[in-house]
Design a protein around this nucleic acid. Structure first.
Lengths: 204, 204
DNA sequence: CTCGTAGGCGTACGGCGTACTCTCAACAGG
DNA sequence: CCTGTTGAGAGTACGCCGTACGCCTACGAG
C-alpha cells in the first residue's frame, strides 16, 4: 500500500560489483555503493542488514554466473570435473578484485552449492561414494579455493618469481632453481596440472 | 648515538598476535596494539610503515614457528611431505584467529620460503624436477592454503554440514546425502585424505 | 657540559559502519 | 477526488579506524 521498493537485491549486488570492478575492493563501502545507486548511504539498510550481507550478495552474483548444468556425460569423468572447475575459475576470474570476498563468503552462496551438487553427481557416477566422496569434494574445494587465491595474490610463475629468484642461492638452492623453471610454466598449465594430480590420485 | 630503540619488531609482532589471539582479528588495530605495549598509537610508526607491514610481522612470527628441518630421510618421500604439511598446519592452527592474515601475507614471509625450500628438497629427492616440480609445489601450496582456510571458515564435517543437510532434498540430492556422510569423517581424515590424493597423483 | 638526533606523544583529519529521527511519496478507503 | 496510513528514503551524528604532522625530551658523542 505504501511506496513500493525501488531496488532489487540483485541491482544492489550489481552496483557493489561495479564499484569493486572499477575502483578495487578497498573502495567498496556502504557510501560508495549508495553513491553508485544515487541514493543516501543509509538507504542501503532497507535492503541489507549490514555490510557483511551486502558482500554476500556480491559473491552470490559472481557465483551465479557459473554454469552448473552437468557436462556431456560421454566424456571421461575427470574431464567433466575439469570442465566444472574451469567454469568456476573463469567466473571468479571475471571479477579479480572480488576474489578475497568470493572465498570468504563461499559457504553462504547458493550458487556455490549448485556447483558442489553437480560435481558430486559426477563423482557418484565415477563410483566414488561414502567417506571417499566427502574427502574428494573437500579436496577439490580446497585445491580450487587455494589455487585461485594464489593465482590472484601473486603467481609462482609471474612477478613474484623474479623476487624469489633473487634470493641467496646458497640458502635456497631448490627454490631459486625452481623459480627460474617457473618462468616457462604458464598459469593454466600450473592450475590444471595441479588439478590433474588430484584427479589422478582420485582415480585408483 | 641518540636514544636507543625500546622495541624489537618481534616484540611488536608478539603484542599484535596477543591481541588477535585474545580478542579476535577484528580487534586488531594500531590503537589496540599500542595499548598492549603501553605506548601511544603513533609510536608504532617508528617500527612499521603502516598496518600492512605490522600484519606481515605477525604472519612471519606465526610461520617462524614451523620446524623446517628436513624429516628423517629414511621415510618414504610422501610421508616426509606429509610431515612438512602437518607442521605447517599445526603452526597455523595455533593461532586460528590469524588464519586470514596468514594466507594473505604468506608470500612475503621468510618462514614460508624456508618451508618451500625443504619441500622442494624432498620433491627433488623423489625424482620430481623441471616443470613437474613447479606444478607440484604450487599444487601443494594451493591445496594446503585452501584446505586450511576451509577448515577454519566452516568445515564440511562440522556445524556447516547440518545447515547443508537441511537443504531441499530434491534439488540437492547428492549434497544432502554427502553432508550426512560427512558427519562421520573427522577433520584430520578429511585434510590428510585430500593430501594423500594429491601425493598419490604425484607418484606416477 | 653541550648539542644534534631520533624516540615517543598528542592532536587532528578524513573516512568508515551504522543507530536514530524526520519527511514525504504512494496507495486504500471513503 | 480527497484523505489517512505506512513504509521508503534522507539527514544527522557517534565512535571507531589509519595515519600526517609537529612538539618535547632522553640520550650519547664530542
Amino acid at each position: 500500500m505504501p511506496r513500493p521498493r525501488s531496488l532489487t537485491p540483485d541491482r544492489l549486488a550489481a552496483a557493489a560489483l561495479a564499484v569493486i570492478d572499477r575502483d578495487g575492493l578497498p573502495a567498496l563501502s556502504m557510501r560508495t555503493v549508495a553513491k553508485e545507486l544515487g541514493m543516501s548511504p543509509m538507504g542501503l539498510y532497507r535492503y541489507v542488514a549490514d555490510r557483511e550481507e551486502l558482500e554476500g550478495l556480491v559473491v552470490d552474483r559472481v557465483l551465479n554466473d557459473v554454469d552448473t548444468t552437468p557436462p556431456a556425460a560421454d566424456a571421461p569423468w575427470s574431464d567433466r570435473i575439469e570442465t566444472m572447475v574451469r567454469r568456476l575459475r573463469d567466473a571468479v576470474a571475471r571479477h579479480p578484485e572480488a576474489v578475497p570476498l568470493t572465498l570468504a563468503h563461499r559457504h553462504r552462496a547458493p550458487g556455490g552449492l549448485l556447483w558442489s551438487e553437480t560435481v558430486l553427481g559426477i563423482l557418484t557416477e565415477a563410483g566414488v561414494d561414502g567417506a571417499r566422496r566427502v574427502v574428494a569434494l573437500r579436496a577439490l574445494h580446497g585445491y580450487v579455493t587455494g589455487a585461485i587465491q594464489l593465482e590472484h595474490l601473486g603467481p609462482l610463475a609471474g612477478p613474484g618469481t623474479t623476487a624469489i629468484a633473487a634470493l641467496p642461492e646458497d640458502r635456497f638452492p631448490h627454490l631459486t632453481r625452481t623459480a627460474r623453471a617457473a618462468g616457462e610454466v604458464d598459469p593454466d598449465q600450473e592450475f590444471f596440472g595441479g588439478l590433474r594430480l588430484l584427479l589422478r590420485g582420485l582415480d585408483d
